[in-house]
Design a protein around this nucleic acid. Sequence first.
DNA 1: TTTATATACTACTTAAAGGTAGAATTAAAG
DNA 2: CTTTAATTCTACCTTTAAGTAGTATATAAA
Lengths: 137, 137
Amino acid sequence: MQLSATSQYAIRILVYMAGQKDSQSINAAELAETLLIPYKFLAKIMTSLVKVGLVESIRGKEGGYKLKKKASDIMVGDILDAFHDSIKDEQCILGIGFCNGICKCALHDQWMEPKLLLQKMFRESSLEDIAGRGCKR
Amino acid sequence: MQLSATSQYAIRILVYMAGQKDSQSINAAELAETLLIPYKFLAKIMTSLVKVGLVESIRGKEGGYKLKKKASDIMVGDILDAFHDSIKDEQCILGIGFCNGICKCALHDQWMEPKLLLQKMFRESSLEDIAGRGCKR
DNA sequence: TTTATATACTACTTAAAGGTAGAATTAAAG
DNA sequence: CTTTAATTCTACCTTTAAGTAGTATATAAA
């Protein structure tokens, strides 16, 4: 009952990037060090983020990464989607009531409420919203 | 963002058992067949459920499994606990704001609401509540 | 044009979850 | 007391997520 490690890393990375001065690129080594994420693993995640269009990469000397959109335009939901870690709409929380694509289990109605709240939260929270606060861990 | 396969299987198993006539034991083979769960894997799960005290096993010929408590006294939360699949209270959904055991991230308040709803739902839903409905999958 | 420094790619390793096999154990019933 | 049908135990196999290593490729700057 949690997000995947990859998603969580990705969120932390992007939140950190959003907190940096605009127009300035950050390289993988710096990200890995400040966020305490294994360098090579981070590099892999960065490549995914580039492929999915959330991040732009500048190769070669003095290279690094930049957000491709404004921090206010990147939603947490976009990140989860990139790593196939969202809450699918058909999904039954208990895994018991998935009949013909429509959940009918006894907890269906109770599950709807938190599900919608979570989906809304993921969909409507931008990096900017999150980056505001301190607590980098 | 889902329960583990094991938890989901366990819930389906117990819900099915709760729907059976009381005082009558059901054996692993029957459970596996009707619930479409691999026999050996189911047997493993049953052993866990016995160890954790939710189910009683009757060994030898004519043996099988019985619920150890009334269906109305077994909560979904108990099952998730048994497989370490609950929503821990300290847990931050985004994995970014876990400072000194207390989440302070910008989504903290928004996460609280669905989290509490889920915890409440797991804590207060008994097998009986769930077993009522049809839809065995 | 060379060099240093970056990302990108391919492949491998490790750890954990999910799943399988077979033999040991138990107990009812003949 | 033997047979038989069931659970339980131990160990293994498979798949996927997580993490690592090495090399190729790109590019700014000297």
